[in-house]
Amino acid sequence: MDPLVFVPGLLCTEALFTPQIAALAADGALVSVADHRSDDTVAAIATRLLAEAPPRFALAGLSMGGYVAMEVMRRAPERVSRLMLLDTTARPDLPEQTENRRRQMSLAEAGKFAQVAPALYPLIVHESRLEDAALRNIVLQMAEATGPEAFIRQQQSILTRPDSRPDLPSFSCPTTVVVGAGDRLTPPDRAREMSELIPGARLETVVGAGHLPTLEAPDAVTALMRDWLIS
């Protein structure tokens, strides 16, 4: 089984993949989590990841982590043995999305970072999980661990990311695209678009999950990852 590198999403930490890390490590996988908090461009995050990763590895990124994963594929496709893109998009932001990001950055700069994650929570989970106190607590703890300075760097990197759609047809490693059926931020049509542009890609939809299926439907995602790693 190839070493596996996870890339979390915006305001997320390694806790985003806790269920999968535990299960796959028990299977014997060598798992690491990329640093996506120290740099303010997707290119710099990808450069850091490649400097710290094994010579050849499987790569899985969720949301912002997907943007980084696609940058890694542009830079060093020969080092990636297989790719999983979860709840992400190859498209750049729409103007209203850019405006929302800048508004959130302004809150963080004004000392109101604590307002950001609670406001985002209803948008990133399946509608059935809105009152899930345990899940909400994990999301808020990840945001607190990220902090305002890293959050601003992350948003800057997202704002300046390229349109990855032209690059997807060149991806040649085995690829699985995963999306929560109830994802409202990067909905299933975005996942379908990526899967149709990447040669031979598989598309998997996780029922009952929103933008964070690794936490909302951990067993289903772990099963998908096990299959992906050995296929």
Rank of each mutant, 00 (worst) to 15 (best):
A22Y: 12
R82D: 04
M73P: 01
L50T: 02
V72S: 03
F17L: 06
M64P: 00
S38W: 02
G65Q: 01
V80W: 05
R75E: 14
R79F: 13
A43I: 07
E78G: 14
S32C: 08
D40V: 01
V31L: 09
M70L: 15
S81H: 12
G66R: 07
D27I: 05
P19C: 10
V33T: 11
R37C: 10
A53K: 03
L83R: 06
R79D: 03
A58F: 06
R82S: 13
L30K: 00
V80R: 05
E78Q: 15
A76P: 05
S32Y: 04
T47Q: 14
M64D: 02
V42D: 03
E71V: 00
G28K: 00
D35W: 00
I45Y: 04
E52Y: 13
A25T: 10
E71H: 10
A23R: 12
G61F: 01
H36A: 12
A22N: 09
G61N: 04
P54Y: 12
E52S: 14
I45S: 02
M84A: 15
L50E: 06
F17W: 14
R48M: 11
P77Q: 11
T47A: 15
A76R: 12
A22V: 10
M70H: 10
H36K: 10
F17R: 02
P19A: 13
V31M: 05
G65H: 01
L86F: 11
V80A: 00
R37L: 14
V33K: 03
L62F: 07
D27W: 09
F57C: 08
D27V: 04
G66I: 02
G28P: 03
L86I: 15
A46Q: 05
S32D: 06
A53H: 06
R74N: 13
A53V: 06
I21Q: 09
